[in-house]
Amino acid sequence: MKKIIINRLGLLIFVVFGVTLISFLLSHVIPGDPARMMVGQRANEETLQQVRQQLGLDQPLLIQYETYMKGIISGDLGTSIRTQKPVIDDLEAFFPATMELAIIAFIFALVIGIPLGVLAAVKKNSFWDHASRIFSIGGVSTPVFWSGLVIILIFYGYLNWFPANGRLDMNIHPPTHITGLYILDSLLSGDMVALKSSLHHILLPAIVLSYAQLAVITRQVRASMLEIMEQEYIRTAIANGIHGPFLFFRYALRNALIPTITVVGISFGSLLGGAVVTETIFGWPGMGKYVVDSIAYLDFPAMMGFTLLIAVGYVIINLIVDLTYYVLDPQIKG
């Protein structure tokens, strides 16, 4: 267990180094001048140079990178060109919204995807299997911007059952800030009004965001369930009178989940990444929206901060995946 954690934390250092280096270099080869963006087309050369100096853009590349890395070590990701605030503060403000959306979408994907995969495997080649296959193909082949718009059109446009914008109704105050996750915060502070409104707002974007992952999880669970059901220990269990849901969930699913975990881990990473589009469609004030706005503004510190955060997120998810393996499979020691 310790070995796994130390291993992954060692990896983290490499990832941080690699990702910052690449994103740093990229930000300097991409044509476009952030200083020019800031001062506008009509500013004169003098002002431009002044701003360059302020941003440190006049320094040699290596010095700039060194300054940036030093900052990261002390927890400073630079200052956003667009918002003029420290990037770390901006991420802190927007990250919880993205995290909340990704978590809820993830829960949907698991809670629906796993039983659907089991059902498809147990009733192989039946109506349920085919239905789940079509549903899954829909999931992986429908782009989020399309399914998002269709869902908004139906549930907001025609039916008007759900809102299509933001995290809360306009007239409702956010719950007391504890974690920044509105659902959790409103539960913790007993704010039922905020809870109801935030659940109401998160449902549509979470469904849209989860659909593609749900499909992947369903297919993976089905495939590994079919494999496990062929194993001899399942035959022993059946010969000993174990049957029905108990056999599928207690005996088979547990082991079918082991190969599924990697897929699930990657899936959560994709959720964080995929949130960019979903957030834009649903006006969700998360990091996705923040980064899209930053790109439009050539706000390199903000983009690099976001990239770094996602990369670190992936490493942490990998760590969680490894630890879950450890818990599910007693044969992995050390």
Partner: peptide
Amino acid sequence: MQSLRGKKIGMVFQEPMTALHPTM
């Protein structure tokens, strides 16, 4: 048939290495 298996008629297979649930 399910209620008969194991209860009235028990069965032992050839390969003890793979006949038991590996993670239980």
